[in-house]
Design a protein around this nucleic acid. Structure first.
Lengths: 355, 355
DNA sequence: CGTTGCTGCACAATCGATTGTGCCAAGCCG
DNA sequence: CGGCTTGGCACAATCGATTGTGCAGCAACG
């Protein structure tokens, strides 16, 4: 059953023409090469009948192109990156490039190895999303003349398109403070930030946005208001538990730095009485549809994945790889209604901006 | 900065040897071809210095291989399929194949087009996951001699590895009934099934598993106990709402057929008092980590993604594509504790089985 | 009738790596 | 010393498609 694939030579023989004629017909430039329309028709019918498919390895070799565009991401199994894959595919297909997405598990060695392999398949462009070591990837790409763009995590050796974490954190913090109610307890009358890692670029920017808004609104911000305890849910759970003990209840507002952290925090919150939850305003930087069904109101920031990749492709389209800019895309602030509503989510400012 | 990539001919010239010698050295079979070790060392040093990378288009063309293995999935942006991508990559890499995952958006035309393009890149194997029209894909693959396996949704023209939906539904239904409490109301003393589409293979098998267990335990099952209202959350929300009206409260047990449906159901449940929720046992076919933080106990079935793909690769490894078997992999039944616990999830039977 | 110009195609080189085969030189044996 | 083996490599064909160039054949034209 496993037939030999048919080639232009097979078709040429069947049609009684030369291979170059077949090639001209099938690649669509038979008019420029002055092939008679009758001949073209005949070849096309034969190709369809034989179910001919071009061998892109051969074609790519000759044309010194592959039609492939690659993207590396840390992992597939993640809401943010999987929606990046989805957007990436759409944008690549619009441009008639064939998308290849590969995960690198936050392992710098695998990151580099994967990029090398992608290059060996002659990919034409590379989107480097959430890379742990974007600059090494840039060096490798540059050596082989592969144009590329960083997304989500910035590098210094290529143009980077990242989320405007500072702005998003400001918006979330402001909305949290606006929706929160003053407490009599001085200890609890503060907004708190929990989750993430302070060495991470995104977390740092969010901490800054949070701190700046808190300072503007309250005059000052204390060290104990910010706890970049790590990304894991259990760490955030423990952090909020101990905060709860330390200040004798929930704070006025709580900024939770990821959905993973939110999971842990919610595990702790479930042990508290409902009226205590009602006294705290909750916000989460990052979005999960399931969080909309939690039992308390929640503000969430949704990163603008389409915006990030759209901008990345705009850079690729314009071939402006040289300037190594840093482009920031504003996220969206969303509000999960506390009681079942017709539409569960309503966007607040919904803005796409470029710094 | 954009250098021409170096080829074996460049290296040959630099090393003062022939291209075939360079090729032999770099492809690792220089011993069989009796190249002197000194020559090999020299070539390898040069290749490293020049940052030579083989051109896989050329190599693949000559060897009539590509090193590529493809997988099509309906979408990336989904917990189940994105974890399939993750497992697929791991298994492919173990075998030194380069994985390409592409989504086809449940569009039969895009499905076929994507497969054709993958074939034109000379992929060596294809995993067809969750395809809407697996048999058309099979025909296309067969015509071009590409070995393939269906996963998640079965086809008739290739071996299929799917989740044991019947068994999983039985387990979930039994556990639900075991954990549920009898009600005085005759109307409410029943288990109900909600969500999914009856034309879908998976939903049908789950309905059968549910119905068979209910019949065994209660002697009979009524039509109104099963409502395949569709996948959307709003549909499930409406279905449960009207059920609640019809039987004057929640039923004894509720089998929810997807996490999407669960989202909708939870939106409705949030409008009910807590003590009413406590009288119903909830189960969801499919798993979401965020569901663990819901305010009521929940049984969940987690499909065994590693098991599904592991079996698919075992078939590829053994090259037994001819027999067109249907292999069913048992899922896991998990229990989300109702109150914050050290470990939020505990597996109940945790079994991998092949029918 | 010779020249020009156009049509319609074929020929052959090429992309870069792989691989069957051939060939020279050194070593060994009888 | 001649023949045979073996080591060490080069040569050239090959994979399938693309593309610059060449060349018949025919019509038109002066």
């Amino acid at each position: 059953m496993r037939k030999r694939k048919s080639t232009i030579y097979d078709l040429a023989q069947l049609a009684g023409v030369s291979a170059s004629t077949v090639s001209a017909v099938l690649s669509g430039n038979w008019k420029e090469r002055r092939i008679a329309e009758a001949t073209a028709k005949k070849v096309e019918r034969l190709a369809a009948a034989q179910r001919y498919t071009v061998n892109r390895q051969a074609s790519g070799l000759r044309k010194n192109r592959s039609g492939l565009i690659g993207m590396i991401i840390p992992m597939h199994d993640n809401r943010f990156f999987s929606s990046m894959s989805q957007a990436f595919e759409r944008l690549a297909r619009e441009r008639h490039w064939y998308p290849i997405v590969v995960s690198t598990l936050r392992d710098p060695a695998l990151e580099l190895g994967t990029v090398r392999t992608l290059i060996s398949y002659q990919i034409e462009y590379l989107v480097v999303a959430g890379a742990t070591d974007p600059d090494s990837v840039s060096r490798e790409c540059r050596r082989h003349g592969v144009a590329h763009v960083n997304v989500d995590l910035p590098g210094t050796r290529a143009t980077s398109v990242i989320s405007d974490n500072y702005w998003g954190a400001q918006q979330l913090t402001q909305a949290l403070i606006d929706r929160s109610k003053p407490t009599r307890s001085r200890l609890r009358n503060k907004a708190h930030f929990v989750g993430g890692i302070a060495t991470d670029h995104a977390t740092r920017r969010r901490m800054e946005g949070f701190a700046d808004v808190v300072t503007t609104r309250f005059g000052h911000v204390d060290d104990d208001q910010i706890d970049a305890c790590g990304y894991e849910g259990t760490l955030a759970e423990a952090a909020v538990r101990s905060l709860h003990v330390r200040i004798g209840g929930l704070p006025r507002a709580l900024f939770i730095n990821s959905t993973i952290a939110l999971e842990g925090v919610v595990r702790f919150l479930k042990t508290l009485p409902a009226d205590e939850l009602a006294r705290c305003a909750f916000g989460c930087y990052d979005w999960d549809p399931f969080a909309s069904v939690l039992s308390f109101p929640l503000l969430m920031v949704r990163q603008n994945v389409e915006g990030l990749l759209g901008e990345a492709f705009r850079i690729i389209d314009s071939k402006s790889f040289g300037d190594k800019r840093l482009i920031e895309i504003k996220p969206d602030l969303l509000f999960a209604h506390d009681v079942a509503a017709v539409s569960t989510w309503s966007p607040l400012p919904a803005s796409i901006g470029v710094a």
